[in-house]
């Protein structure tokens, strides 16, 4: 019975149109301008950068005013990725970190480069390296990666509440 058909391949193709939503638009415009524009929650007053899906999930409300935050930030925690991953174009090993930008109240994910993976630390201070301006799109991918600033590490207590 070696000619039994046990499996068939049936590709599925569907096109989707995603919407960033009005609240994320000012953030995306900011990225087209080399700035990190987040939003403040009108209820708890914390600053979200990026403004996620336009909501403060803790309060269950729509985010309010735009707030530009600093370019520099602190690594709160990180992962050294050694797995070749489908769709992943970054050479391994690389560091994926949660970065708390100065003036923001929640970390965001990005790459850390220009430092050996083994030398990356929790609390390390980092800054963005932007793509050439003519390559900018409305996307966080405008920042190629973050790199160490050389400043002293932030104290653990300063970001412990983020873990």
């Amino acid at each position: 019975m070696s000619d039994d058909v046990l499996r068939i391949r049936t590709p599925i193709g569907i096109k989707y149109q995603y919407s960033a939503g009005p609240r994320v638009s000012s953030h995306l415009h900011g990225l087209m301008d080399g700035r990190f524009v987040g939003k403040r929650c009108p209820t708890c007053h914390l600053v979200y950068m990026p403004p996620r899906n336009g909501t403060c999930a803790k309060c269950g409300c729509l985010l309010g005013e735009d707030v530009e935050v600093g370019q520099r930030g602190t690594i709160t925690t990180f992962c050294i990725v050694n797995v070749p991953f489908l769709g992943q174009t970054i050479k391994i090993p690389y560091v994926a970190a949660t970065i708390l930008l100065d003036g923001a109240d929640m970390g965001m994910s990005h790459l850390i480069q220009e430092v050996e993976a083994a030398d990356v630390r929790m609390g390390m201070r980092v800054e963005p390296v932007w793509r050439p301006r003519d390559e900018w799109q409305p996307s966080m991918e405008n920042v190629l990666y973050f790199r160490p600033t050389g400043e002293p590490d932030a104290a653990f207590e300063s970001y412990a509440g983020q873990l």
Partner: peptide, 14 residues
């Protein structure tokens, strides 16, 4: 069609 994210559509109704 709508331009809001699903969550943005949801909050006013909730």
């Amino acid at each position: 069609t709508t331009t809001a994210t699903p969550v943005e559509m949801l909050i006013p109704v909730v």
